[in-house]
Amino acid sequence: MTDFQFSEEQRDCLQELVNVAMGLASDKLARYLNTLVHLQVPAIKLVKTEQLPEHFADRHQQQSVTMISLGFFGDQGLRGETIMLYQLENVGVIAKLLGYSDDDSSEAEMLTDISSVLTTTFLNGLAEQLDNSFSYAAPRILSSRDKHFAEKLASTAEQWQLALQVDIRYQLTDYSFNCDMILLIPGEAVLRLRLILDQILASF
């Protein structure tokens, strides 16, 4: 069996790249929303995909969660899927932030919009760090107000070998919300990513 583990140096390197990517994303968001986005260090964790459902079941116990997935493809075999998890009580806050209060957009439409803004700005930043560029598939709602969300997450996660779990907290001047972002990366892309990280590490 191939070992998809990361060394501490590789993990640190990835964390820093994520950090810089978040910086780029929040700068764009701040300019777009005309406010300050306070960023906390995104805690990134590499987890086995089979552990994900358990982790999120603990975390989102008794709360309705909406899951939105967005696939991305880059050069050199880099590809993956991001999953954003929102707690529904957050949705109103996020909507207000993005100026969705006064028209006929459905909740589903709003959530896919927000997810694509948050994930593509972040992933564009990450691609820049990796000297790559990503293209994106349209976001999909995997479940909404769904009790069996853990099962759905499990069946989605099964197809991937590695999950990079990034907890993001966006805090704006008047509002704050948090959401979880999970980056799911298939095995061959994990190997590719490690090669790129090693190249970066070797140059310092």
């Binding site: 764009k28 968001l29 300019r31 777009y32 100026g99 459905s106 589903a108 439409e109 896919t112 919009d113 694509s116 803004v117 593509t120 700005t121 564009n124 994106y136 349209a138 976001p139």
Partner: peptide, 19 residues
């Protein structure tokens, strides 16, 4: 709003027939 978002964030936006 969608177009302004795409232009200022330089990130793609999507719309699905389901919504």
């Amino acid at each position: 709003r969608k177009l302004d978002g795409v232009l200022s964030l330089q990130a793609p936006a999507f719309s699905s027939w389901e919504q």
